[in-house]
Nucleic acid binder design. Structure first.
Length: 469
RNA sequence: GGAGAGGUGGCAGAGCGGUUGAAUGCGCCGGAUUCGAAAUCCGGUAUGGCCUUCGGGUCAUCGGGGGUUCGAAUCCCCCCCUCUCCGCCA
């Protein structure tokens, strides 16, 4: 959520921001509703002050009179009743007026909230402008010794590559038909070495973050309440992408949602809390199953392990005090952790600065990391793919957009300390999402004989297995 | 799933219709005392919104939302959460 005060002060900044992100939102309407609400609120508040004053002044007297009335009778009682009624009349009239104003406020508030939640965080000025992923800008790329991006896989390695689908099939790593039988389209079963490799990469990623990069390991819920989805900024925009457990429809208490990323649980941890600055930054890592409906993605990347409804992901988040330079530094280091990981895995990759149109509502800045996948991309004259980058990571910088929604603040000296509270800044980045990351691992480490060499970093998690054959 | 008990400030814990935004204790901050510290004493100590002539004013908030009332932390209704016992269970 953006700061409504900031919007009032500089509406153009938010209008431009929305435009750059390609988001349609009626900022003028929001300002108009906000002005009305404040005007009505101020009037209601003045009346309420008057009402409270009267109640305080006349309250004790009323109590006395009511007491007397109980024992009184006849003319005395009638006189007392009349006095009570006359005292009550003024505040009663005020109450009516207040209720009318409150009804007016209640009538405009839902629309105000709806628009407010939809206003995107304006992109940072140094984010390149653009309308789609075609306008994203490559920052840098890396490849292990012996790999030249200018050459084809065959020129680099001396044999034509198989796609990950072919490798999964021939090596018995994934069973797609049975996955589909059990759970429908975009489902799969990891089998044997496939499952082992999947677990190995998750463990490797998780352990690296905990043991080498100082992140606190966490297990968080993946089945969450709507508030958590709204608070983390996934709703309302991402509602269509989320599985919805309609408990209310079966007479149960409340609906729940399956999270598409561990970020929801990690960021939800400190909702409504005031964090002690001495405990910042909080660096958390979790591994969780992620669920995505992929509604509207029909036909896109349909083959194989690329776009699926359920996967597992190691996710990192950092929560720190509100400081742009600190946030920017965290962003860099979070990408650095991933680069270190990919280099240990020997996977060629590039960093892609997302343009304004590709940021999503909650990010000020986002950098995608893409791994080279020989089995993707345009096909050659033989009908074989020529390779392409595929997104495997996404590093977001959100300023206080998320923490404002979550009501997560920090203050010097902690909860009981002095000084003003400030909304925290938050960042998040993938560490490893599997099985998608298996695509470059399998395709890049395949051998001419159809086997796949296990990257050294993963062998410890696979019983020292060196080659999957 | 059944039965019961609760949710009050950073924490503990009173209040159960009328200056109660809330006693008291702890914690925290400032001061006194001290060579310094502990102990003791004194004072202070919620968050958010709106208005502001920037002095301040004002409203909301006692799990959340509605209601009753001139007036609600206190009464009523719905929801959420926690705990205890029974049942079931990885």
């Amino acid at each position: 959520m953006i700061d409504l005060k900031a919007l009032r002060d500089n509406p153009e900044r938010f209008k431009t921001g929305a435009q750059l992100k390609g988001v349609t939102v009626d900022v003028d309407r929001l300002l108009q509703l906000d002005a009305s609400k404040r005007e009505l609120g101020t009037r209601a508040e003045a009346l309420r002050a008057e009402q409270k004053k009267l109640a305080k002044e006349t309250g004790p007297k009323l109590g006395q009179l009511m007491g007397k009335m109980k024992s009184a009778s006849g003319a005395e009682k009638a006189a007392l009743e009349a006095e009570v009624e006359s005292i009550k009349a003024a505040p009663a009239r005020l109450k009516d007026d207040i209720q009318k104003l409150e009804a007016e406020i209640a009538a405009i508030d839902p629309e105000l909230q709806t628009i407010l939640l939809a206003v995107p965080l304006p992109p940072d000025n140094d984010v390149p402008r653009g309308t789609s992923e075609a306008d994203n800008v490559e920052l840098r790329r890396w490849a292990p010794d012996g790999w030249d991006f200018a050459k084809s896989f065959e020129e680099n390695k001396g044999f034509a590559p198989k796609t990950h689908l072919e490798l999964c099939e021939s090596l018995g790593l994934v069973d797609f038909p049975r996955g589909v039988k059990i759970a429908g389209s975009r489902s799969y079963v990891l089998t044997g070495r496939g499952m082992q490799l999947h677990q190995a990469i998750l463990r490797f990623a998780f352990d690296t973050m905990v043991n080498e990069n100082g992140f606190t390991p966490m297990s968080v819920p993946v089945l969450v309440r709507e508030e958590s989805m709204v608070g983390t900024g996934f709703f309302p925009a991402g509602r269509d992408q989320t599985y919805h457990i309609e408990e209310s429809a079966r007479g149960g208490g409340y609906d729940m949602f399956l999270t598409g990323t561990g970020e929801v649980g990690l960021m939800g941890l400190h909702a409504d809390e005031i964090l002690d600055e001495t405990t910042l930054p909080r660096k958390y890592v979790t591994v969780s199953t992620c669920f995505r409906r992929e509604a509207g993605a029909a036909g896109k990347d349909t083959a194989g392990l690329y776009r699926i409804h359920q996967f597992d992901k190691v996710e990192q988040v950092i929560i720190d005090k509100a400081d742009e330079q600190t946030s920017r530094a965290h962003h860099q280091s979070m990408m650095g952790y991933v680069e270190g990981l990919l280099q240990k895995l020997g996977l060629p990759y590039r960093l892609l600065q997302c343009c304004t149109g590709d940021l999503g509502v909650k990010n000020a800045d986002m950098v995608d990391i893409e791994c080279w996948m020989p089995g993707r991309g345009d096909v050659n004259s033989d009908g074989r793919p020529t390779g392409a980058f595929g997104e495997t990571h996404s590093a977001s910088r959100l300023y206080d957009y998320q923490c404002r929604r979550l009501n997560m603040r920090h203050r010097e000296g902690g909860e009981a300390g002095k000084g003003a509270t400030t909304f925290c800044h938050s960042l998040n980045n993938t560490v490893a999402a599997s099985p998608r990351i298996l695509i470059p691992i399998l395709e890049m480490h395949q051998n001419a004989d159809g086997s796949v060499t296990v990257p050294e970093a993963l062998r410890g998690y696979m019983g020292s297995l060196e080659v999957i054959a």
